[in-house]
Simulated assay, not measured.
Amino acid sequence: MVDDIHNMAHEPASDPEAIEEILEEDAVDIDFDDVVEAAAATVEAADAAPPFNEDNSVDSAVVADLERQVAGLKAQLEDRANQSMRIAADFENYRKRTSKEKDELATQIKGDTVIELLPVVDNFERARSQIKPQTEAEMTIHKSYQSVYKQLVETLKRLGVSAMRAEGQEFDPLLHEAVMREPTADHAEGVVIEEFVRGYQLGDRVLRHAMVKVAAPPEDDSQSPDVESTGPSD
């Protein structure tokens, strides 16, 4: 039983009820019944063979035998107590690990689902920036699908998804993907000056890197002046 608990505590999580079934099936091993029975047998043996001679002197052999039995019982009791503590510790570690793996799996599934929805968000944002309704009917349609976009964004926020704000930030390869560098004196080197595709995060996990343009040092167009060479005078 102990080996089963130790093996489950150090193996990938499977059925959380399996370890509980083992504990229920072999609970007698943890109740110290065998130690209690041995102690009772020792007491009975002591009653049957008291450690005194006929002249009321102590029989050292009987006392030594009883001391050995008591020491053995103490060792068994300590072993069972340590065994129970190890089982409890292994079970607690198993419970914590399965809980962590469950949370990580849920986050992974959520992130993969959101990644599939990001192109839909992109299309809504392109429509908002590029389509300019001219008539009242067009404006009605425009507001209608933009309300759907707003609802989608609010749903993503409730799931823990956040959009990156890359422009004006220092370029970070963990968050951004530089697709262009532009020499400029208007921004410090390495600053994001334009965002082409917005990046998204789920907690600390990057779902999509932001595709950006990064400032580079301005090009030096100055040229060294020509130095007129002079030959030896005649």
Results as ranks from 00 to 15, higher is better:
A88E: 05
A38S: 13
A41F: 04
G72W: 02
Q69I: 01
Y94G: 07
E92M: 09
V70D: 01
K74L: 06
D103F: 09
I87M: 08
E78H: 06
Q108A: 13
K100C: 03
M85G: 12
D112A: 12
D79A: 10
D33P: 00
D55P: 04
F91E: 05
R97E: 15
G111R: 10
T107Q: 11
D112P: 08
N56W: 01
P51Q: 07
T107E: 15
L77T: 03
A75N: 15
V35Q: 05
V58C: 00
A64T: 12
V58S: 01
A49G: 09
A64R: 04
E104Q: 08
D65H: 07
N93D: 15
I109W: 03
T107C: 09
T42Q: 13
N53G: 02
L73C: 07
M85L: 14
R80P: 00
A49Y: 12
V43C: 03
K100I: 14
E37G: 09
T107F: 13
N93M: 15
A48Q: 04
V70C: 06
G72A: 09
A71F: 14
D103G: 02
V43T: 05
N93H: 05
V63F: 02
L66H: 08
D90S: 06
Q76K: 13
P50L: 06
A38D: 08
R86L: 07
